[in-house]
Design a protein around this nucleic acid. Structure first.
Lengths: 222, 222
DNA sequence: TAGATTGTTAATCGATTAACAATC
DNA sequence: TAGATTGTTAATCGATTAACAATC
């Protein structure tokens, strides 16, 4: 369980498994085989078994997988089994939209929103008061923060990322349309909306040219 | 230029090339070699040359690439060389945030916002009046729409996607945390925020375990 | 026990990297 | 011309799929 590191391709599929299993759970499905999962998710059964076996065997020969158990195990792998805290840096439209999104559902609790605009000071979003960036260092002294979502204007993205790193933040969810320059210590996950839209544009304009394949699912639609 | 279809892995990298070249352009850089690009973008020079050669040769031996030319050619490949229209379905926080995001910058012009909530009727976001879903069919008769961004609640996502398909929409930018069931005719690009956050969570909790590699850039940080 | 389905090894496929001849 | 750097072919690497023995 220690040495080998898991391929990013595998990691990227786990949340989708997790979500699908969650839906099965809601529908009262107790057990499922890799073959059935394969049909429902448009992934090969072989890949599902390979993926899961990176983390140990969760199934049983002749039976398949227990939905509830598998769901909770994948949740553990993804770190969803305990509450993590998040702050939002940048209280603009996107920042406020994130604050209103229910990430508690997957174990992420938003405990602070920060901005530089004094006109926003004291306003609340979903019961969380917007604070000034100057207050951030003190806030981080008092509160353990796992993830910072970055929704500031492009031009302030890099300096603020540097500041966050200096303040000890080790995971940044980056919504700014730029690449951040932080040390290898800091995990960055980009949500580049413009790039996402551009690939949709490409696929839209060249649609019909791809030969259909199972594999294309994740590549094309994500 | 016709037959072979381009790998999704290549397509996914194009927007990032485009963005980086745009920055070089702003900084007045006229020419660049694949080696220099490689250094700046943390991708191998070999990969850059391979990627570009899927679309024909944009460079010149002994010289490298003309930044402006390459930027504009990639823009054409991605369909950014002419204005495309977009509507937003769901005028909640996320929908409004998208309406306020400047996608005109990359050639996408938002021409309509729709919702089912009558209390939103007549309100404007960035000068665009929110219309009722009932008005959508008539609107689509009058206006050519290339892309529909879907920012409705999870439970209405699938029926609305079906409706959009029936109304002739052929590209959906899906922000709902679910997979849509539409025909192969319709291009779907998912922005699954919850899944994105989950992979960040995984990487954050297992940080330091990956061996560093060039390749990991796109996989880890996107 | 017989049937089903996993866990896992082997085969295939595709994507990345390396190398180098072509050529500006 | 000599040097630089592309376009492209070949080699490597990794990820997906297939197959099957293990076993519930």
């Amino acid at each position: 369980m220690t040495g080998r590191s898991i391929s990013p391709a595998v990691i990227k599929r786990l949340p989708r498994y997790y979500r699908y299993l969650g839906e099965l759970l809601e529908n009262g499905v107790e057990r499922i085989s890799s073959k059935e999962l394969s049909n429902g998710m448009k992934v090969t059964a072989s890949q599902i078994r390979q993926d899961l076996n990176n983390f140990g065997g969760f199934g049983q020969q002749g039976y398949g997988y227990n939905v509830e158990y598998l769901h909770s195990e994948i949740g553990k792998i993804l770190g969803l089994d305990h509450i993590q805290t998040m702050i939002i840096i940048g209280a603009g439209n996107l920042g406020q939209a994130l604050a209103n999104y229910n990430f508690d559902r997957i174990g992420f609790h938003i405990i602070g929103i920060f901005d530089v605009n004094p006109r926003l000071e004291g306003l609340s979003v979903r019961g969380i008061e917007i604070q000034m960036m100057d207050d951030l260092p003190a806030f981080l002294e008092e509160n353990r923060v796992h993830v910072a979502a970055l929704t500031v204007p492009k031009k302030s993205a890099r300096p603020i990322a540097t500041q966050l790193e200096e303040l000890g933040i080790r995971a940044i969810w980056n919504f700014t349309p730029t690449d951040l320059h932080v040390s290898e210590e800091v995990c960055v996950k980009n949500v580049h909306l413009d790039e996402s839209l551009m690939t949709l544009s490409y696929n839209f304009r060249n649609r019909g040219q791809e030969k259909y394949s199972y594999r294309s699912y994740m590549d094309d639609k994500d």
